[in-house]
Amino acid sequence: MTEPALAHIDLSGVGKAFRIGTQTVPVFSGLDLSIAAGDFVAIMGPSGSGKSTLLNMLAGIDSPDSGTLRIGASRLDQMGEGARAAWRAHNMGIVFQFYNLLPMLTAAENIELPLLLKPLSARERRLRVDKVLELVGLNGRGKQYPALMSGGQQQRVGIARAIVTDPGLLLCDEPTGDLDRQSADEALSMLGFLNRELGKTIVMVTHDPQAAGHAKRTLHLDKGHFIEETRAA
């Protein structure tokens, strides 16, 4: 793996509201957040607290109405949708709650998807896929289809897909929400390894306190505001 790009996250005065019919429902108003490169942050909070909206904005899937959103050297709040898509392809990986593997593609082909957005030869792509398969402990399983894998194995494929482009930032949306305890612990251990050993900045949204316990710090969000921060011992 090459040295990951620095992914310092900085939100300043971020405002976001949704329009439902004729009503405007504010989610954030003047939200500030700073996450240092190499940090592992869990975000917890009740439903409707704004966790998903925050994750969507960090992923460049949604954009703030006001304020600044900077990740590394990039101002996401100033980018159009196309630019944000290109930025996503090169700077971050997403781990989904339900893995979101394409069922008609093999594990290796699923992992290869983000690499198709890069100017790499087929051989270079295959080498990278093999490398991350080994990293997540699925060596030799590349030709298996997702339907033939357990939930834990599918999530490991999802993690491999998220890191195959060697991004500096990993966004995890309830990564253990669909897993049994043992598989969840394996996935969280893997995220911890990626943070500790490879320096990935990780932001994880979760409802599970045990999952949050693997992070270096946990931010508690309620009604669009961070109300508490706990740090791992």
Binding site: A59, I61, E81, G82, A85, A86, R88, A89, H90, I94, F96, N100, L102, L113, P114, L117, R161
Partner: peptide
């Protein structure tokens, strides 16, 4: 829809 949204979230173009 989910497959399309997934690959678009990974960076695939419209």
């Amino acid at each position: 829809a989910v497959e399309i949204a997934t690959v678009r979230a990974l960076g695939f173009s419209r």
